[in-house]
Computed example of a mutant assay.
Amino acid sequence: MKPKQYETKKDYILESLKDRILSGTFGPGVHLKTRQIAEEYGTSEIPVREALSQLASMGLVRIIPHVGAITSSLSSHDLKEIFQIRETLESLAVRLAVPQLTDDDITQIADIAKTLEDAVAEGDAPDRLNYLNRQFHMQIYQHCDNQRLIHIIDDLWNHATRYPGPLTGNNPETRQSLQDHQDIVAALKERDAETAELVTLTHKRRAMRRIIQKTEQEELRTRIETEGSVLE
């Protein structure tokens, strides 16, 4: 039975499948079979097809004629494109947010930064660290007074969550990210939009380099394994 907060079965199926794709439950290249999904959710195939069509419009699946819906994958080049857009839009969101922030807003943002620091010190799992990292940034962006901008940023971030996040544990890269967060908070307290924007831009570029490097290494490993199996 679908939860009451969803108006239609299609909405429920859409959000459920979306969560499973973004969480990695459905990895890249998985065939999402309409009939099987309909049986799982106890519905007809019509809302399933509608949900899959919407997932395709989000770029999360590809609809292949005579095959069906296949979860999409992102190459290192795709991720680079996404991060190039994100670094520009997220820096803009910070600049727009600064004049709107109250002292209480900044306190909430600083509290999230502290929670993330504590999580790193306590050795929490990377999933937890990257969740708090996203929460920190989105807590700032939500004050930019531009819902379309927030929606675009959130959508682009969703695509990247299927791949390794920038925070992997208590290491120099993570500690640099935590320092960046403190520098952003300091700029917010000073109501210095220009500095907050610049620190965010630099911060995002560092994250992009780390994630792209990891993805390229994984692509190389997969290519070597594939070529090796062919030679065998």
Rank of each mutant, 00 (worst) to 15 (best):
T71Y: 03
Q100L: 01
K9Y: 15
T168I: 09
M138L: 13
S177Q: 11
I64A: 01
L201N: 12
Q142I: 12
I153R: 03
I46H: 11
I85F: 08
T226L: 13
S75N: 06
P47W: 02
I212P: 02
T34A: 01
E194I: 14
Q135S: 10
E7Q: 14
I64K: 03
A110K: 06
P164K: 02
Q147R: 12
E117I: 01
R205W: 01
E7A: 15
S23R: 12
V185Q: 03
Q135L: 12
G68F: 06
L96S: 07
Y12Q: 11
Y131C: 06
K80D: 14
Y131K: 14
P65F: 10
A121T: 06
I140F: 05
L231G: 00
S53Y: 12
Q54G: 00
N170R: 10
A51G: 01
S73C: 09
G29C: 09
M138C: 03
L156I: 14
E227V: 07
G169E: 08
A121G: 10
L198A: 15
L201V: 07
I63G: 02
P65W: 04
D155P: 00
Y41Q: 10
L32V: 04
C144V: 04
D155W: 15
H151L: 09
T102E: 11
S53Q: 07
R210D: 13
L101I: 00
A186V: 06
I70P: 06
F136Y: 15
T115H: 13
K2V: 11
K189D: 02
L178S: 10
R191L: 09
A113T: 12
R35F: 08
L167T: 08
K114C: 04
I140C: 04
R205F: 06
P3C: 08
T202V: 13
R206V: 08
D183H: 13
E81N: 15
D78S: 11
D155M: 07
K33W: 02
L89E: 13
V94D: 01
V199Y: 10
Q36S: 12
P172W: 07
D11P: 07
E190K: 14
M58N: 11
P126N: 02
